[in-house]
Simulated scan of single mutants.
Amino acid sequence: MTSLSEFLARQIRNAIRDAGGWIGFDRFMQQALYAPGLGYYANDLRKFGAMPESGSDFVTAPELSPVFGAVLAEQVRQALAATQTDEIWEFGAGSGALAAQVLGALGDGVRRYTIVDVSTSLRMRQQQALAPFAGKVQWAQRLPECIEGVVLGNEVLDAMPVQLLQRLDGVWHERGVALQDDDFAWSDRPTDLRPPVQVPGDHDYLTEIHPQAEGFVRTLARHLVRGAAFLIDYGFPESEYYHPQRAQGTLVCHRAHQMDTDPLADPGLKDITAHVNFTGIALAAQEAGLKVLGYTSQAHFLMNNGLLEKLEQLAPVDKAPAVKLMLEHEMGELFKVLAVGPGEAWQPRGFAQGDRTHRL
């Protein structure tokens, strides 16, 4: 593992030297996560799992409880009927657990399930997990001209590279990475870039902007001609994201189910992630022609789709992890769900109660 990180670090050092001694953090994050064969999501190390003993680094909702996919499937079922489609597209399918749960719940209601994932090693895991559905599942390297169906993205946006902005003594800088004695070091340069809203106060302030995630949504909008997209992730609306008290930003790393705040250490061996600015994502979707169909907390979304009824059917040992999906201090409040789609607006059942679109 150490040699993998050292080899990737050497590659990033060369990129910094080739760029004149400095690269923006978004480029560092891109290499640390996605460099072919070496980046965190491109190497063979295990990522997903409920416990650190498994060698995993973090747990996502489908690994926490299969109830997540079963409940999400109820929303997908309604969306397929409302848009008169029969295909599902999932971006960043992880271990394949969510796809297996949704396909298991929907059965013949889905004709085809297409996964778009940049990781070759994860694709192999997905193929093993989805072997029972081999006749319906396919993998795509690029998007077709037209997508007709329901799009799912669970914890996809948070893994897209971000740019860092640092306000120092009232002057905005872009935070990048340079070399100091051949080690990675933070280096700030004055910039015309700004957060999308003015941050009150004159105190030093570190935050992120999300051009790649917003670009992804614009690209999706160009291809999604019929259907809907459900994006599930941790994050905030703009007013909370750029709150003056959030002066250290949201960037964190995950390794062995522990968090740290040093993304420059051990590249390739840990996840690097930032919370999602859902206002920016919603605006990018609208500007590209999609309509916002709903926005709410994961707890409201899952309960609207029948989570409480499914909990009643579980054995006590299975109920405890499933409850974490909706508890406020677990996943229920930090995680949000945003739905967008082309054509005439309609109301997905996940937003029937507790819709927060007005807060975006």
Rank of each mutant, 00 (worst) to 15 (best):
A129K: 15
A256Y: 09
L8P: 02
V76A: 07
Q84A: 15
L302T: 00
A81W: 12
G69W: 01
V162R: 09
R349N: 07
L130F: 03
P66I: 07
A70L: 07
L360G: 08
G55Q: 12
G55M: 03
V252G: 06
P267R: 13
P348V: 03
R10D: 02
A159L: 05
V276N: 00
E74D: 15
L98E: 04
Q180D: 12
L338R: 08
V252Y: 15
A73K: 11
W139S: 05
E208Y: 06
V276Y: 01
A15D: 07
G294Q: 12
R194Q: 03
Q248E: 15
A315P: 11
A81G: 10
A265G: 11
Y242R: 00
G350K: 05
G69M: 15
N154W: 13
D202P: 08
A140C: 11
F301K: 13
Q138I: 04
R222Y: 06
S65F: 02
F58V: 01
V217Q: 01
A134G: 14
E312Q: 12
Q126V: 03
Q353L: 11
K336T: 04
L231D: 02
G21V: 07
Q347M: 14
V252I: 13
L360R: 14
D182W: 02
I115Q: 07
A105Y: 14
L152W: 14
L224F: 11
T85D: 07
V340K: 02
G55S: 05
V292E: 11
Y295E: 06
P195I: 03
L72Y: 12
S119E: 10
K324G: 01
R167W: 08
C253M: 02
L33I: 14
R142N: 10
A322Q: 06
L307H: 06
E214S: 08
V162F: 07
A19F: 11
M326V: 15
E74Q: 12
M331C: 08
L80C: 10
L220M: 14
A352I: 05
L64D: 13
E214R: 08
R222Q: 15
Q75L: 04
Q298Y: 09
D117V: 11
V59I: 03
L302K: 04
V217T: 07
Y242P: 01
A131D: 03
F91K: 13
M259S: 15
A15M: 02
